[in-house]
Design a protein around this nucleic acid. Structure first.
Lengths: 115, 115
DNA sequence: TCAATACTTAAGTCACCGCTTGACAATTAA
DNA sequence: TTAATTGTCAAGCGGTGACTTAAGTATTGA
């Protein structure tokens, strides 16, 4: 029951159309393994393997009652990825701000873009 | 010069530590190919291939002057991914809201979680 | 002009990943 | 009890992708 959510595993998991489709399906509500497998033109076992990957990186969680396993999204599973993206954009913003400051200063002695 | 930014290519590109490190480096400013290659314990050609992937999915853009190619982040390259993540979270929020509505209604005739 | 720099391109190797099949286990319905 | 449903597990196959080496081009500095 690994709880570690590293962004590497999350991105590798989402970089796969089937798994992304599963996440999209689950974002509108829980579903059983059979439900999730139904739309796909691939073996049941293949879908189960995808679910294991998604659960392994903390994007979903599942619970078995009787012979039926129900999967649902882990609410905070996407947080690390969202944070990473936000941070990249923040860095870029800061850069633009500094560039703006430079351009707004006194007469331009050197219009240097950093090399 | 493909301009299409599909989320599939973006995620595949970012699901690779080296490429993600390059994006992180570039989010604090432009750099030449040599600059970008220097920190990595791998061949120059391998880094160039990574850059081609990043440029191919619209995450970076590059420009060659003389014999030097300078790379920089494409400001809107991460937007589709950010949107996708935001949308998944929005769907989940809506679900919780509806659930809350149900729970806040009159006496519970059926505490049905959707199956 | 010559050599060094900064890439570019192509071909080949290898590991991993997505998928299949097949056998099995556990629960439920008839 | 028997059969059907629902999922689990393991082994193996094939394609893709990350990397290497090697050869080539174009620009720059001495």
């Amino acid at each position: 029951m690994l709880k570690y959510q590293d962004i590497d595993a999350t991105l590798r998991a989402l970089a796969e159309p089937t798994r992304r489709a599963i996440v999209e399906r689950l974002s509108s509500g829980p579903a059983t393994v059979s439900d999730l497998a139904a739309p796909f033109d691939m073996s049941f076992a293949a879908v189960v393997q995808h679910l294991q990957v998604l659960e392994g990186c903390g994007l979903i969680r599942s619970e078995k009652v009787g012979r039926v396993r129900t999967c649902r999204l882990e609410p905070e599973g996407l947080a690390p990825l969202a944070d990473w993206v936000a941070q990249r954009r923040a860095f870029m913003e800061r850069r633009f701000d500094r560039l703006g400051d430079l351009l707004n200063e006194t007469d331009p002695p050197a219009p240097a873009d950093e090399s």
